[in-house]
Amino acid sequence: MLETSARLLRLLSLLQAHREWSGADLADRLGVTSRTVRRDVDRLRELGYPVHASPGTGGGYQLGAGAELPPLLLDDEEAVAVAVGLRTAAGQGVEGIGETSVRALAKLEQVLPARLRRRVGALTDFTVPMLRTPRERVDPEVLTELANACRDSERLRFAYRDHGGAATRRTVEPHRLVCTERRWYLVAWDVDRGDWRTFRADRIEPKPPHGPRFPPREPPADDLAAYVSKGVSGSAYATEVTVRLFVPLAEAAGVVGPMDGVLEPESEGTCLLRAGAHNLQVAVVHVVLMGLDFEVVEPPELTERVRDLRDRLSRALARTEGETAAGS
């Protein structure tokens, strides 16, 4: 049985290495008869590998694409290349693939031999990509450790720095990693505080050993991306504001990112933006720089800050126009 299994893996590796093989060539490479090759091909098909066969003297065997992705065999160089690519995608926060990259990276690094892990680490550490990067880089090893804890429903212990720089120790039941364009967040049940919390991954320093296992809880929201967005763009700040944007929701979504605030539909041509800031003055600048027409909904004090900014800009414009007129 062991010999047959090893031969099947070797056959699969050969089929992945070249587009097409003749039966005679495969038999020669494997040291078996053509009849054994045919039986082994049938076993691969039973395992879900779509091996196509074409008859005749010019025919042969070819590994095709199937309805589902079967396990792949990678040699050392291919495994290193894939791991480095996944780390790059995860670290850059590429929209739409960041979380998927971490899940795939966690699976791959779990089976990578130590010698390949060292090669992947060296390539990652000594490569500087000329890409748009988040402000705070997250160690891919930390991300994979968090992803594995979420997958295995295993309690996680870590040191954490809050937004004020204060250090705490946390024990949590991790649920999901959520990726925005600029940052990674861990959504988890805080055991000591008895409530759901959102943690920035770049501020997490895991403190193993982890465990024990726990039964998964109902998540705090069906849409975890919206849940995290609401938390990090509003409630985490001292001041929260709501403004009405005079553009359709879809158009506003092209300008307002998850870190900027939470959009809510209102009418065909308007939507609401709820955002947070350290103070009202910062909130005004934040909204103005989006380049969209708006009006203040709440708080009323925000309207006064808008007037102050209008008057300041008017004075600056008047001075500039006056100097231009005097110079001419």
Results as ranks from 00 to 15, higher is better:
Met1Ala: 15
Met1Cys: 13
Thr4Arg: 15
Ala6Ile: 11
Ala6Phe: 07
Arg10Thr: 15
Arg10Asp: 15
Leu14Gln: 06
Ala17Glu: 15
Ala17Ile: 07
Ala24Leu: 13
Ala24Asn: 11
Arg29Val: 00
Arg29Gln: 05
Leu30Arg: 00
Val37Trp: 00
Arg38Cys: 06
Arg38Val: 10
Arg38Trp: 09
Asp40His: 01
Asp42Pro: 00
Arg45Pro: 04
Arg45Gly: 09
Pro50Gly: 00
Val51Gly: 00
Ser54Glu: 14
Gly59Phe: 03
Gly60Tyr: 02
Gly60Val: 05
Gly60Trp: 03
Ala67Arg: 12
Glu68Met: 14
Pro70His: 12
Leu74Tyr: 10
Asp75Lys: 00
Val80Trp: 01
Val82Leu: 15
Val82Arg: 14
Val84Thr: 13
Leu86Ser: 07
Thr88Asp: 09
Ala89Trp: 07
Ala89Glu: 06
Gly91Ser: 01
Gln92Phe: 04
Gly93Pro: 11
Val94Met: 14
Val94Pro: 10
Thr100Asp: 14
Ala106Glu: 05
Leu108Asp: 05
Arg115Tyr: 12
Arg119Tyr: 10
Thr124His: 15
Thr127Glu: 14
Leu131Tyr: 10
Arg135Gln: 13
Glu141Lys: 08
Glu145Cys: 14
Leu146Lys: 08
Leu146Ser: 10
Ala147Val: 09
Cys150Arg: 07
Arg151Ile: 10
Asp152Asn: 05
Glu154Asn: 09
Arg155Thr: 14
Leu156Gln: 04
Leu156Val: 02
Phe158Arg: 09
Phe158His: 07
Tyr160Glu: 06
Tyr160Gln: 08
Gly164Leu: 00
Gly165Asn: 00
Ala167Gln: 12
Ala167Thr: 06
Ala167Ser: 10
Thr171Lys: 02
Val172Ser: 06
Pro174Arg: 05
Pro174Asp: 09
His175Ala: 12
His175Glu: 13
Arg176Ser: 14
Val178Gln: 13
Trp184Tyr: 13
Tyr185Asn: 11
Val187Arg: 01
Asp192Gly: 09
Arg193Lys: 15
Gly194His: 06
Asp195Phe: 03
Arg197Lys: 10
Arg203Pro: 04
Arg203Phe: 04
Lys207His: 11
Lys207Ile: 11
His210Cys: 05
Pro212Gly: 05
Arg213Asn: 02
Glu218Met: 06
Pro219Tyr: 13
Pro219Phe: 13
Asp222Tyr: 06
Asp223Tyr: 12
Leu224Arg: 07
Ser229Asn: 08
Ser229Met: 02
Lys230Trp: 14
Ser235Pro: 03
Ala236Arg: 15
Ala238Leu: 08
Glu240Ile: 03
Val243Gln: 05
Arg244Glu: 05
Arg244Asn: 03
Leu245Lys: 01
Leu249Cys: 04
Ala253Gln: 14
Val255Leu: 02
Met259Phe: 13
Val262Leu: 12
Glu266Cys: 04
Glu266Phe: 08
Glu268Pro: 00
Cys271Gly: 09
Arg274Pro: 07
Arg274Ile: 08
Arg274Asp: 07
Ala277Tyr: 01
Ala277Lys: 00
His278Tyr: 06
Gln281Ser: 15
Val282Gln: 08
Ala283Met: 13
Val284Asp: 13
His286Lys: 14
Asp293Arg: 11
Glu295Tyr: 04
Glu298Lys: 08
Arg310Asn: 07
Leu313Ile: 04
Ser314Leu: 11
Leu317Glu: 01
Ala318His: 13
Ala318Ser: 09
Ala318Thr: 11
Ala318Ile: 08
Thr320Glu: 14
Glu323Phe: 03
Thr324Tyr: 15
Thr324Ala: 15
Ala325Trp: 09
